[in-house]
C-alpha cells in the first residue's frame, strides 16, 4: 500500500477528473458510479490482500467518527 504521494505532478489532474466524472449526476447516480468504479479498480489491482489493506486504511481514516 502506497500512502506517500504516487501521482507526482498529475495529482490535480487526477482529482479534477474524478470530480468531473460525477458532473450532472444525481446523488444516487453518483453513488452507483462510485460503486462501479470501486469494482473496476478492485479488479485492476488484482490483489485481494492489498485491496483489504486499502479498505482498512479507508475505514480507519474516516473524518466523521
Amino acid at each position: 500500500m502506497i500512502l506517500e504521494d504516487n501521482l507526482g505532478p498529475h495529482g490535480d489532474d487526477a482529482y479534477a477528473a474524478l470530480i468531473a466524472a460525477h458532473e450532472g449526476l444525481s446523488t444516487a447516480q453518483s453513488q452507483a458510479l462510485n460503486a462501479r468504479l470501486i469494482l473496476i479498480l478492485m479488479n485492476e489491482l488484482g490483489d485481494p490482500n492489498r485491496f483489504t489493506q486499502l479498505l482498512t486504511e479507508a475505514r480507519a481514516s474516516s473524518s466523521s467518527d
Binding site: 452507483a32 460503486a35 469494482l39 473496476i40 479488479n43
Partner: peptide
C-alpha cells in the same frame, strides 16, 4: 444492494464482473 446491482450492470459488458 448498490454494489450487487452495479456488479450486474458491469457484467453485461465486462467478464471480470461476471465472475463476481
Amino acid at each position: 444492494a448498490l454494489f450487487r446491482n452495479e456488479t450486474l450492470a458491469l457484467a453485461s459488458k465486462h467478464p471480470f464482473a461476471r465472475k463476481l
